[in-house]
Protein backbone atom coordinates (compact mmCIF):
# COMPACT_ATOMS: atom_id res chain seq x y z
CA UNK A 1 0.00 0.00 0.00
CA UNK A 2 1.32 3.46 -0.88
CA UNK A 3 0.43 6.22 1.55
CA UNK A 4 2.96 8.92 0.68
CA UNK A 5 5.02 10.13 -2.22
CA UNK A 6 8.62 11.05 -1.49
CA UNK A 7 11.11 12.89 -3.71
CA UNK A 8 13.41 10.55 -5.60
CA UNK A 9 16.41 9.49 -3.53
CA UNK A 10 14.80 10.35 -0.18
CA UNK A 11 17.39 11.49 2.35
CA UNK A 12 17.44 10.29 5.91
CA UNK A 13 19.73 9.75 8.89
CA UNK A 14 20.67 6.55 10.63
CA UNK A 15 19.76 7.74 14.10
CA UNK A 16 22.18 9.27 16.56
CA UNK A 17 23.30 12.89 16.28
CA UNK A 18 25.71 14.87 18.51
CA UNK A 19 24.11 16.25 21.64
CA UNK A 20 24.27 20.05 22.00
CA UNK A 21 26.92 21.14 24.53
CA UNK A 22 24.25 22.59 26.79
CA UNK A 23 22.40 19.27 26.91
CA UNK A 24 25.60 17.47 27.93
CA UNK A 25 25.99 20.00 30.76
CA UNK A 26 22.39 19.53 31.84
CA UNK A 27 22.81 15.74 31.92
CA UNK A 28 25.90 16.19 34.06
CA UNK A 29 24.01 18.47 36.47
CA UNK A 30 21.10 16.02 36.57
CA UNK A 31 23.41 13.15 37.51
CA UNK A 32 24.93 15.33 40.23
CA UNK A 33 21.43 15.93 41.58
CA UNK A 34 21.56 19.63 40.80
CA UNK A 35 18.53 19.77 38.51
CA UNK A 36 15.14 18.08 38.66
CA UNK A 37 13.60 15.34 36.54
CA UNK A 38 11.27 17.91 34.96
CA UNK A 39 14.22 20.11 34.03
CA UNK A 40 16.16 17.31 32.32
CA UNK A 41 13.06 16.16 30.43
CA UNK A 42 12.55 19.72 29.23
CA UNK A 43 16.19 19.82 28.12
CA UNK A 44 15.77 16.56 26.19
CA UNK A 45 12.64 17.91 24.49
CA UNK A 46 14.45 21.13 23.58
CA UNK A 47 17.40 19.18 22.21
CA UNK A 48 15.18 16.97 20.04
CA UNK A 49 13.35 20.03 18.73
CA UNK A 50 16.66 21.66 17.85
CA UNK A 51 18.20 18.57 16.27
CA UNK A 52 15.14 17.76 14.17
CA UNK A 53 15.05 21.36 12.99
CA UNK A 54 18.75 21.17 12.16
CA UNK A 55 18.19 18.05 10.03
CA UNK A 56 15.23 19.63 8.27
CA UNK A 57 17.16 22.83 7.58
CA UNK A 58 19.90 20.70 6.05
CA UNK A 59 17.20 19.35 3.73
CA UNK A 60 16.78 15.85 5.18
CA UNK A 61 13.47 14.34 4.07
CA UNK A 62 13.08 11.75 6.84
CA UNK A 63 14.51 12.99 10.14
CA UNK A 64 14.98 11.10 13.42
CA UNK A 65 15.26 12.47 16.95
CA UNK A 66 19.04 12.07 17.05
CA UNK A 67 18.71 9.62 19.98
CA UNK A 68 19.19 12.61 22.25
CA UNK A 69 17.69 10.75 25.20
CA UNK A 70 19.92 7.69 24.78
CA UNK A 71 23.47 7.44 26.13
CA UNK A 72 24.13 4.23 24.27
CA UNK A 73 22.08 2.00 21.99
CA UNK A 74 22.08 -1.20 24.08
CA UNK A 75 22.30 0.36 27.52
CA UNK A 76 19.16 2.43 26.85
CA UNK A 77 16.99 -0.66 26.35
CA UNK A 78 18.75 -2.78 28.98
CA UNK A 79 17.95 -0.13 31.58
CA UNK A 80 14.25 -0.52 30.77
CA UNK A 81 13.80 -4.24 30.06
CA UNK A 82 13.43 -6.18 33.31
CA UNK A 83 16.10 -8.83 33.98
CA UNK A 84 19.26 -6.87 33.21
CA UNK A 85 21.93 -5.84 35.70
CA UNK A 86 24.87 -3.43 35.35
CA UNK A 87 28.19 -4.32 37.00
CA UNK A 88 30.15 -1.41 35.56
CA UNK A 89 31.74 -0.17 32.36
CA UNK A 90 33.98 -2.17 30.02
CA UNK A 91 36.34 -0.74 27.47
CA UNK A 92 35.42 -1.01 23.80
CA UNK A 93 38.57 0.60 22.42
CA UNK A 94 41.24 3.01 23.67
CA UNK A 95 39.65 4.97 26.48
CA UNK A 96 36.09 4.50 25.29
CA UNK A 97 33.81 2.63 27.65
CA UNK A 98 30.42 1.01 27.39
CA UNK A 99 28.17 0.10 30.30
CA UNK A 100 27.74 -3.51 29.22
CA UNK A 101 24.67 -5.08 30.81
CA UNK A 102 24.33 -8.61 32.12
CA UNK A 103 21.20 -10.74 31.76
CA UNK A 104 20.65 -12.16 35.26
CA UNK A 105 16.94 -13.08 35.19
CA UNK A 106 14.10 -13.82 32.79
CA UNK A 107 13.65 -10.78 30.57
CA UNK A 108 10.28 -9.05 30.62
CA UNK A 109 8.79 -6.34 28.45
CA UNK A 110 8.36 -3.26 30.65
CA UNK A 111 5.76 -1.56 28.44
CA UNK A 112 6.47 1.04 25.76
CA UNK A 113 10.10 2.17 25.74
CA UNK A 114 10.25 4.43 22.69
CA UNK A 115 6.64 5.48 22.09
CA UNK A 116 6.99 8.78 23.97
CA UNK A 117 10.14 9.50 21.93
CA UNK A 118 8.26 8.81 18.71
CA UNK A 119 5.24 10.92 19.68
CA UNK A 120 7.45 13.90 20.51
CA UNK A 121 9.41 13.50 17.28
CA UNK A 122 6.15 13.33 15.32
CA UNK A 123 4.99 16.47 17.04
CA UNK A 124 8.07 18.58 16.28
CA UNK A 125 8.86 17.41 12.76
CA UNK A 126 7.29 19.07 9.75
CA UNK A 127 8.02 16.08 7.51
CA UNK A 128 5.29 13.55 6.66
CA UNK A 129 7.53 10.59 7.47
CA UNK A 130 9.92 10.31 10.41
CA UNK A 131 12.18 7.45 11.40
CA UNK A 132 12.26 5.68 14.76
CA UNK A 133 15.28 3.58 15.63
CA UNK A 134 15.37 0.59 17.92
CA UNK A 135 18.26 -1.71 18.76
CA UNK A 136 17.72 -5.23 17.47
CA UNK A 137 17.52 -8.37 19.60
CA UNK A 138 20.71 -9.92 18.26
CA UNK A 139 22.84 -6.87 19.00
CA UNK A 140 21.37 -6.41 22.48
CA UNK A 141 22.23 -10.05 23.21
CA UNK A 142 25.67 -9.93 21.63
CA UNK A 143 26.63 -6.81 23.57
CA UNK A 144 25.42 -8.23 26.89
CA UNK A 145 26.72 -10.87 29.26
CA UNK A 146 24.36 -13.84 29.43
CA UNK A 147 24.14 -15.34 32.91
CA UNK A 148 20.57 -16.62 32.68
CA UNK A 149 19.55 -18.20 29.38
CA UNK A 150 20.91 -21.63 28.43
CA UNK A 151 22.04 -20.37 25.04
CA UNK A 152 22.48 -17.14 23.16
CA UNK A 153 19.77 -18.24 20.72
CA UNK A 154 17.32 -18.56 23.62
CA UNK A 155 18.25 -15.08 24.78
CA UNK A 156 17.79 -13.57 21.32
CA UNK A 157 14.43 -15.35 21.02
CA UNK A 158 13.24 -13.73 24.24
CA UNK A 159 14.48 -10.32 23.15
CA UNK A 160 12.83 -10.82 19.79
CA UNK A 161 9.44 -11.21 21.52
CA UNK A 162 10.08 -8.10 23.59
CA UNK A 163 11.12 -5.93 20.64
CA UNK A 164 8.15 -7.22 18.63
CA UNK A 165 5.83 -5.94 21.37
CA UNK A 166 7.61 -2.59 21.22
CA UNK A 167 7.19 -2.40 17.45
CA UNK A 168 3.48 -3.13 17.83
CA UNK A 169 3.23 -0.32 20.40
CA UNK A 170 4.95 2.09 18.02
CA UNK A 171 2.65 1.19 15.13
CA UNK A 172 -0.40 1.49 17.40
CA UNK A 173 0.68 5.09 17.99
CA UNK A 174 1.19 5.84 14.30
CA UNK A 175 4.84 5.05 13.54
CA UNK A 176 5.33 4.31 9.85
CA UNK A 177 9.07 3.85 9.47
CA UNK A 178 11.03 1.90 12.06
CA UNK A 179 14.68 1.00 11.73
CA UNK A 180 16.06 -2.00 13.62
CA UNK A 181 19.77 -1.53 14.34
CA UNK A 182 21.84 -4.71 14.14
CA UNK A 183 25.53 -3.76 13.87
CA UNK A 184 26.55 -7.05 15.53
CA UNK A 185 24.68 -9.24 13.05
CA UNK A 186 27.67 -10.75 11.23
CA UNK A 187 30.05 -10.90 14.18
CA UNK A 188 29.64 -14.65 14.63
CA UNK A 189 29.26 -16.22 11.15
CA UNK A 190 27.90 -19.48 12.56
CA UNK A 191 24.97 -17.63 14.14
CA UNK A 192 23.79 -15.57 11.17
CA UNK A 193 21.30 -18.17 9.94
CA UNK A 194 19.22 -18.35 13.12
CA UNK A 195 19.69 -14.62 13.73
CA UNK A 196 17.97 -13.90 10.39
CA UNK A 197 14.99 -16.04 11.45
CA UNK A 198 14.73 -14.25 14.76
CA UNK A 199 14.96 -10.80 13.17
CA UNK A 200 12.07 -11.79 10.90
CA UNK A 201 10.18 -12.91 13.98
CA UNK A 202 10.91 -9.53 15.61
CA UNK A 203 9.28 -7.70 12.71
CA UNK A 204 6.45 -10.19 12.15
CA UNK A 205 2.99 -8.64 11.82
CA UNK A 206 4.20 -5.05 11.94
CA UNK A 207 2.27 -2.69 9.68
CA UNK A 208 5.11 -0.25 9.02
CA UNK A 209 8.17 0.05 6.85
CA UNK A 210 10.89 -1.90 8.66
CA UNK A 211 14.49 -1.03 7.86
CA UNK A 212 17.53 -2.93 9.07
CA UNK A 213 20.79 -1.08 9.71
CA UNK A 214 23.94 -3.22 9.59
CA UNK A 215 27.27 -1.40 9.64
CA UNK A 216 31.02 -2.13 9.84
CA UNK A 217 30.16 -5.71 9.09
CA UNK A 218 31.07 -8.47 6.72
CA UNK A 219 28.61 -7.92 3.86
CA UNK A 220 29.83 -11.10 2.15
CA UNK A 221 28.15 -12.92 5.01
CA UNK A 222 25.03 -10.75 4.97
CA UNK A 223 24.20 -10.50 1.27
CA UNK A 224 23.39 -14.19 0.62
CA UNK A 225 20.61 -13.83 3.21
CA UNK A 226 18.97 -10.65 1.88
CA UNK A 227 16.01 -12.44 0.29
CA UNK A 228 15.44 -14.41 3.48
CA UNK A 229 14.68 -11.24 5.43
CA UNK A 230 11.00 -11.55 4.58
CA UNK A 231 9.86 -8.84 7.02
CA UNK A 232 12.51 -6.26 6.12
CA UNK A 233 11.88 -3.70 3.38
CA UNK A 234 15.05 -1.66 3.50
CA UNK A 235 18.70 -2.24 4.37
CA UNK A 236 20.63 0.83 5.56
CA UNK A 237 24.25 -0.04 4.88
CA UNK A 238 27.61 1.67 5.29
CA UNK A 239 29.60 2.22 2.08
CA UNK A 240 31.57 5.48 2.42
CA UNK A 241 33.82 3.99 5.11
CA UNK A 242 34.84 1.21 2.73
CA UNK A 243 35.50 3.63 -0.13
CA UNK A 244 32.45 2.37 -2.07
CA UNK A 245 34.53 -0.67 -2.96
CA UNK A 246 31.84 -3.27 -2.48
CA UNK A 247 29.17 -1.74 -4.70
CA UNK A 248 29.32 -4.51 -7.30
CA UNK A 249 28.02 -6.85 -4.62
CA UNK A 250 24.70 -4.98 -4.81
CA UNK A 251 23.90 -6.50 -8.18
CA UNK A 252 20.47 -8.10 -7.93
CA UNK A 253 19.76 -6.51 -4.53
CA UNK A 254 16.08 -7.19 -3.96
CA UNK A 255 15.25 -4.73 -1.19
CA UNK A 256 15.37 -0.97 -0.86
CA UNK A 257 18.86 0.27 -0.09
CA UNK A 258 19.60 3.01 2.45
CA UNK A 259 22.89 3.93 0.83
CA UNK A 260 25.61 5.21 3.22
CA UNK A 261 27.42 8.08 1.51
CA UNK A 262 28.91 9.92 4.51
CA UNK A 263 31.81 8.58 6.58
CA UNK A 264 30.87 9.19 10.21
CA UNK A 265 34.34 8.41 11.58
CA UNK A 266 36.14 11.09 9.63
CA UNK A 267 35.86 14.83 10.26
CA UNK A 268 36.50 15.71 6.63
CA UNK A 269 33.26 16.93 5.10
CA UNK A 270 32.55 15.16 1.83
CA UNK A 271 31.83 17.43 -1.14
CA UNK A 272 28.40 17.29 -2.85
CA UNK A 273 30.21 16.15 -6.00
CA UNK A 274 31.67 13.15 -4.17
CA UNK A 275 28.23 12.28 -2.85
CA UNK A 276 26.70 12.59 -6.31
CA UNK A 277 29.43 10.42 -7.81
CA UNK A 278 28.84 7.69 -5.23
CA UNK A 279 25.08 7.72 -5.88
CA UNK A 280 25.62 7.45 -9.62
CA UNK A 281 27.85 4.42 -9.00
CA UNK A 282 25.21 2.82 -6.78
CA UNK A 283 22.56 3.40 -9.44
CA UNK A 284 24.49 1.06 -11.74
CA UNK A 285 23.31 -1.75 -9.47
CA UNK A 286 20.18 -0.44 -7.73
CA UNK A 287 17.23 1.26 -9.44
CA UNK A 288 16.69 4.86 -8.23
CA UNK A 289 13.16 3.91 -7.15
CA UNK A 290 14.75 1.55 -4.59
CA UNK A 291 17.37 3.96 -3.28
CA UNK A 292 17.35 6.08 -0.12
CA UNK A 293 20.39 8.15 0.87
CA UNK A 294 21.85 8.41 4.36
CA UNK A 295 25.17 8.64 6.24
CA UNK A 296 26.98 5.37 6.98
CA UNK A 297 25.89 5.32 10.60
CA UNK A 298 24.88 7.64 13.44
CA UNK A 299 26.73 10.94 13.53
CA UNK A 300 27.02 11.21 17.32
CA UNK A 301 30.83 10.95 17.42
CA UNK A 302 31.28 14.02 15.20
CA UNK A 303 31.41 17.61 16.46
CA UNK A 304 27.94 19.07 15.91
CA UNK A 305 29.02 21.63 13.31
CA UNK A 306 30.74 18.88 11.29
CA UNK A 307 27.66 16.64 11.51
CA UNK A 308 25.50 19.48 10.23
CA UNK A 309 27.85 20.25 7.33
CA UNK A 310 28.00 16.58 6.39
CA UNK A 311 24.21 16.40 6.19
CA UNK A 312 24.07 19.60 4.12
CA UNK A 313 26.66 18.21 1.75
CA UNK A 314 24.79 14.91 1.49
CA UNK A 315 21.57 16.69 0.53
CA UNK A 316 23.32 18.95 -2.01
CA UNK A 317 24.85 15.88 -3.64
CA UNK A 318 21.42 14.25 -3.80
CA UNK A 319 19.93 17.40 -5.40
CA UNK A 320 22.53 17.19 -8.17
CA UNK A 321 21.51 13.62 -9.01
CA UNK A 322 17.81 14.40 -8.68
CA UNK A 323 18.16 16.95 -11.50
CA UNK A 324 19.61 14.23 -13.69
CA UNK A 325 16.80 11.85 -12.73
CA UNK A 326 14.16 14.40 -13.73
CA UNK A 327 15.50 14.13 -17.28
CA UNK A 328 14.85 10.38 -17.03
CA UNK A 329 11.33 11.08 -15.82
CA UNK A 330 12.00 10.05 -12.22
CA UNK A 331 10.80 12.76 -9.84
CA UNK A 332 9.37 10.89 -6.93
CA UNK A 333 8.98 7.46 -5.41
CA UNK A 334 6.22 5.92 -3.33
CA UNK A 335 6.75 5.34 0.37
CA UNK A 336 6.34 1.58 0.55
CA UNK A 337 5.74 -0.20 3.80
CA UNK A 338 6.64 -3.53 2.28
CA UNK A 339 9.12 -4.45 -0.43
Amino acid sequence: MVDYILPALPTSVIGSYPRPAWLRRMIKYYRMGRISEDAIQEAYDDAVTTIVREQELAGVDIPADGEQRRDEMVEYFAHQIKGFKFYGPVRVWGNNYFNKPAVVDKLEYPGPMTVEEYLFLRQVSTRPIVKVTITGPYTIADWSFNEYYPSKEDLVKELSNIINQELHALVDHGAQFIQIDEPALTTHPEEVEWAVDLINRTAKGIDAKIGLHVCYSNYDLLFPYIDEFTEISQFALEFANRGFNDLHKLKGFSKELGFGVIDVHNRRVESPEEVALAIRKAMKYVEPEMLYINPDCGLKLQPRNVAKKKLESMVRGVLMVREELVKRGVRSIPFRKRV
Partner: peptide
Protein backbone atom coordinates in the same frame (compact mmCIF):
# COMPACT_ATOMS: atom_id res chain seq x y z
CA UNK B 1 42.67 1.91 12.06
CA UNK B 2 40.23 0.26 14.41
CA UNK B 3 39.36 -3.35 13.67
CA UNK B 4 37.34 -5.86 15.64
CA UNK B 5 39.36 -8.15 17.92
CA UNK B 6 38.05 -11.56 16.84
CA UNK B 7 34.35 -11.88 17.66
CA UNK B 8 34.38 -9.43 20.57
CA UNK B 9 32.79 -6.02 20.83
CA UNK B 10 36.34 -4.76 21.37
CA UNK B 11 38.43 -2.99 18.79
CA UNK B 12 42.18 -2.69 18.29
CA UNK B 13 44.28 -0.53 16.01
Amino acid sequence: WLVRFYDNNFFVR
